[in-house]
């Protein structure tokens, strides 16, 4: 069994990984002003209070940055390329980014701003990661493949364009 780099749980970060194992996305939040901070830090970056506590967030957000990783640089990903690395901006707060993977999403649908929602994937024994997939509309469950492909009507070239 090849493991990915495993997080080393500390007093500051344990909640995040234990939450993920319970399929819950927890983000550290200031108990005085309500500002979220991620990755976890011992201080609120908005009001400098040190009273922070993990709170469950909605798991909704939008892709802020992404890349389709084609080359593996660690044995764990040797048979997993290509995979998508992204920073997702969570709905709770502008600029609240989490580094993650996008799954269940055809490459041509990837775009900055794509609405996504959290999903939890056990990638190795003892490691569950909060990943994201295209958001299913509030009208009811839809497969990711039904999400409208806007790559044709946007100004940008498709992510996979050659020339």
């Amino acid at each position: 069994m090849t493991y990915p780099p495993m997080p080393r749980l500390t007093g500051l970060t344990r909640f995040f990984w234990e939450g993920a194992a319970r399929r819950s996305l927890l983000i550290l939040r200031c108990q005085e002003c309500g500002y979220y901070t991620h990755p976890p830090r011992p201080v609120c970056r908005s009001c400098l209070s040190m009273e922070l506590a993990p709170e469950e967030v909605s798991g909704r957000g939008a892709i802020y940055m992404y890349t389709v990783a084609v080359t593996a640089f660690h044995p764990f990903w040797k048979d997993k390329v290509p995979y998508t690395i992204a920073v997702v901006e969570l709905a709770e707060q502008p600029g609240l980014g989490v580094t993650t993977n996008i799954v269940d999403c055809p490459e041509k649908l990837l775009r900055v701003g794509l609405p996504v929602e959290a999903t939890f994937v056990e990638t190795a024994p003892g490691l569950t990661l909060p990943m994201f997939r295209p958001a299913i509309r509030a009208t009811g469950p839809r497969a990711a493949s039904e999400v409208v492909d806007r790559s044709e009507d946007s100004a940008r070239p498709a992510a996979t364009a050659g020339r």
């Binding site: 990915p4 976890p40 940055m65 992404y66 640089f73 690395i85 580094t99 900055v112 990661l129």
Partner: peptide, 24 residues
């Protein structure tokens, strides 16, 4: 913070900041 990046396979600068910035 590597703990919040490397388990997701973001392990080298070519991915972040390189490719993520270029794609954005």
């Amino acid at each position: 913070d590597p703990q919040f990046a490397r388990p997701f396979g973001q392990v080298l600068p070519v991915q972040w900041p390189g490719a993520l910035t270029a794609q954005r």
